[in-house]
Amino acid sequence: MQIPFTVEARPDTGLNNAKLGIWLFLASEVMLFGALFSSYILLRVNADVWPKGHEILSVPVAAFNTVVLISSSVTVIMAWASLKMGSLSKGRMYLLLTFVLGLVFMCVKAYEYNHKFHTGLFPSESTFLAIYFTLTGLHGLHVLGGMIVFAYFWGPGSKMWHSEPEHFTNRIEVAGVYWHFVDLVWIFLFPVLYLL
């Protein structure tokens, strides 16, 4: 069965279904991360001691990752803009770049985790580390999920361009909106965990 209203707007919502769908999903994501941020505040306010993030974590490494993620937000929007301007080859190049930047982010994160584990800093070590691993772990899973989606659209998914270019462009836009949300969460995680 064909999903209706993938390109044209549904008369009653004024939106195509994918657009409304992704925003409803992101609203639920706001609650997921919101609950964890709320837990962070509760844990921190009630803790006897709370370390400064930079005493345990590396600010330069996280700053680098922040730049990587912000750059990947630009490449994904460039992928959409390129498709809008009718160039599949450019669009795919930007999708690949976004995927690679996601991969760089995950590699840096793996390096950070590995470093922590080697120095005996496990989630069980302290409340700070517990919430650090929970928040960054959940965020990392979101990055991984986005990478899988981009890999699909770069590879087999891009065939749709030849039959339904507008539908494909909308898919990239919607995937991009999700990716920007993942970037947005990191924008808060970085100062909250590493700097404060």
Binding site: T13, K19, F37, L184
Partner: peptide, 30 residues
């Protein structure tokens, strides 16, 4: 990021309503 990358600056009303609702619950959580 939300305004320009996610195109919220020129989005339809229904999305604003959805996000206002989410924002109210988010503030509640905080």
């Amino acid at each position: 990021v939300a305004a320009y990358f996610m195109h919220l600056i020129s989005e339809k009303k229904l999305i604003y309503y959805t996000l206002i609702l989410a924002a109210i619950f988010f503030v509640g959580l905080m």
